[in-house]
Design a protein around this nucleic acid. Sequence first.
DNA 1: GAAAAATATGTTAAAATATAACTAAATATT
DNA 2: AATATTTAGTTATATTTTAACATATTTTTC
Lengths: 252, 252
Amino acid sequence: MKKERMEAVAELLDKRGKLSLAQLCEAFPDVSEMTLRRDLLKLEQENRLIRVRGGAMSVNEVKKVSGEEYTKKTVINTDQKRTIARKAAALIEPGSCIFLDGGTTAMYLAKEMDDVSCNVFTNGIAVAMELAQKKNVRIILLGGQLLKENLSTAAPAAKVYLENSNFRIAMISASAFTPEHGFSCSSQIEADLLRMVREKADALYMMLDSSKIGKVKPYTFARIEDLDVLITDDMFPDEIKQAFKEKNIVVM
Amino acid sequence: MKKERMEAVAELLDKRGKLSLAQLCEAFPDVSEMTLRRDLLKLEQENRLIRVRGGAMSVNEVKKVSGEEYTKKTVINTDQKRTIARKAAALIEPGSCIFLDGGTTAMYLAKEMDDVSCNVFTNGIAVAMELAQKKNVRIILLGGQLLKENLSTAAPAAKVYLENSNFRIAMISASAFTPEHGFSCSSQIEADLLRMVREKADALYMMLDSSKIGKVKPYTFARIEDLDVLITDDMFPDEIKQAFKEKNIVVM
DNA sequence: GAAAAATATGTTAAAATATAACTAAATATT
DNA sequence: AATATTTAGTTATATTTTAACATATTTTTC
């Protein structure tokens, strides 16, 4: 009994890399939190995992992340993205059904959002993994071919999937924006997908940090007038904000 | 200044392996506890250490202790899965198109397999992430609702995808097996999906480590006669192997 | 097969630790 | 020199862990 549970705990942890105690409790609803704590303690003494605040981490996970080294050290505009993510997170209403893209900003949003009961469609597997930690969020992943650069799916198949899905709000971001060229990204199929998302959604919320302004990428998937809401940071130039406001788009 | 102190913190930690916050405060009496906390947080974000309750641990320390005193059982268990994964990996031919499930064994397989040009369908996002590191592997992720316990998608929608997909070999695993109850798992929708996969595939390869034998889970998705190949470890009982061989299933 | 011992689990309160928010100081930028 | 920006300190608050005890379960012993 105990032994099997402990094995299962260790295995789950190996699979997921990192688990919070709350997640463990969810996975093993028959036993109390304290029991799982004690399991983790024993497993730690056997050097099978590392206990961290709030849960535990598999040793493999530790090796893995340490192997990644500094590649992602210089993440650009982290704070701004987090600001935007926080604003966006505040807009998610319990019971709602939204779409999130697979970008970095969406990742932050997934981190920041409350664990409210809602449905989230996404094409980003990193976003999905992040959301998996929320108990009340139901995640629907768009399938299709995986783009390795950004770990998101974007293929005709994903579109098929969208056809049968309904969401009120789509919260997406772009890698580039100018008033003339609109919102653009570097992959054709991604642009296709986002275009489709934009049409399916009742409301389109764009999360755009100021560093994207003035850049142009090959594929435009939306223009100013397609938006309903623009969520941005404090560095965003007023004159460009004005351009949005003139077209009745809410800027926050 | 900040930079030097942080370097010093990282260095001290590497030297000592593990430090409590109190120890850190002692080593750096000029700054407040909060500052050191923040340093640890940043260093953790750079993947240079792991924060544990009360302090932090160097990644090298983690590797060291984890290498030291694994219980024999764990080693065997992982080894078994890895053995199976390696055998399975050897069966993947360049240019082929295969299905992998979202289980732990599939994860190991994803790790072990060569970076050959091939197409892999999977419903496991952890598997997909692992495979994303291979340059030549084209990954197609099945969409659908995400099961948080095992990070795999398994919903009616995933089945829609399957309908338009063709793969020669499906390599899957089960959480339980007995000759009477066949291969079973604990989730209804997962079983549905696997059943469909089994029917779509030209050949069904089952990866089953010996620890699964004698267990029964609620939902059976395949029986002995459905298999083409059984991939297992050395601990697998001969009499059960025999049962497979009698039905002309290749055991390796 | 029953009593005793050992082990495992659950419950609660207390302690330790981490986070967040805010203020002050130091440093860099213009 | 004035103004941002970053860094550091302080405090209050929230969270997580531990510890202690009570109860249940299994194992051992007779």
